[in-house]
Design a protein around this nucleic acid. Sequence first.
DNA 1: CGTGCGATTGACGCGTATCAATGTAAGTGG
DNA 2: CCACTTACATTGATACGCGTCAATCGCACG
Lengths: 232, 232
Amino acid sequence: MPLDRSIIASLPLFEGLSPAELDGVLKDARAARFPKESTIFEQEAEVRSFFVLLAGHVRVVRATPDGRQVIARYISEGEIFGIAAALGRLTYPATAIAAVDCVVLVWPNAVWPDLAARFPVLSAGTFKTVGSRLQDAQARVVELATEHVEQRVANALLRLANQTGRKTEAGIEIDFPIWRQDIAEMTGTTLHTVSRLLSAWEERGIVVSGRQRVTVTDAHRLVLLAQHRSKD
Amino acid sequence: MPLDRSIIASLPLFEGLSPAELDGVLKDARAARFPKESTIFEQEAEVRSFFVLLAGHVRVVRATPDGRQVIARYISEGEIFGIAAALGRLTYPATAIAAVDCVVLVWPNAVWPDLAARFPVLSAGTFKTVGSRLQDAQARVVELATEHVEQRVANALLRLANQTGRKTEAGIEIDFPIWRQDIAEMTGTTLHTVSRLLSAWEERGIVVSGRQRVTVTDAHRLVLLAQHRSKD
DNA sequence: CGTGCGATTGACGCGTATCAATGTAAGTGG
DNA sequence: CCACTTACATTGATACGCGTCAATCGCACG
């Protein structure tokens, strides 16, 4: 049963493609559902597919040889991911895990060259995506090298709020379950320190947080904390 | 005066191109010389060109708003750099500085789409380059987030030695001037700490170092230091 | 109404940044 | 060619951020 083109027509990645072209893109795709906390692909595994996230949130994690792990990024709806093949890799550089129940489109690896050649929009869009992830990664390098834990955690929360925030009456809530350990793994610190920071911020009315839930209530002051320079 | 195709024929980036094609690639290029410590392009400046390094070493630096800086990478001979345009950026994300006297090829920005379309080898090669830089950057994020200063400095030296090392009778010498501050900016630490580490390592016979010069004499033990988890 | 996992909080100490002083090699100008 | 200057490197003393260890709390779920 072919997939309906309407499910991807509105995604920026496929912008400008005609209905017939959309069908062509979808011909080789299949939809898949991944329950919360299930693995979509695993680090070091052979690259077989690439993906577009239709619904949900995906956590991308890199593990170190000694068992520690770092969250490389969260994927939001509409994003392409697992494009290791296009970058000339044979194995995935990280593990992707559904942070909530997810729906994804899956293409077999082998169709990429053909798709990229037939749809320059797609190729250019992917180029841009990779470029912006490179920017991201290098910005994080700078952050880790120069900023203190407090600023890094503030920045991480702001990025999450921007990227996936849902407005509530209390403020901007991060709309997937996230626990202290996650935030620690995004910022290169420990859950203890994250907990202390969130507690302190909650006391000052900047955030409201609880079990697997964080709401930013005063983004402005959080920005100030994020920019706070140690030396001036 | 047209450039001779022999200057790029042996570079991996242009592998497989016919003599006529090489001439086509070179038609829009010009060669330029940058003296030691001169700026090739500046962070935030409008993107006008992209480059291939023919001779020398280039240091790529990102500055933070408060004046600190981080060395993003060193470019070696034969590498393409300053490809912000291909990634859809209007300004350079970093500053490139000649670490020694350099010779580079310069193409105007505008010819990229045409070149990329006419020479898929070039496009694919650039894709791979960007992909591997993304890998690099994310690996550094993990390093900064999980490892201690000593391991990070050891890793940085090993990478430099691998990438640009020159064998001497004493060991592998990094063949461009590098001072303590540079190593500090590669690893997110201070020149003081780097100095202390190098002194300690020199005492143990692992490196020999002096003013703007570092030679790795016992790479094996340095690898051990780099992998050293937690404690003894 | 327990049971357990996530969150909180305190105590402590290590790793490094920071501050400061001195050493030393490479220019530079007379 | 030598005194002077500048810039990089070394080394010690001190402070402190934050990781680590450990105990307790409290909300969710069976």
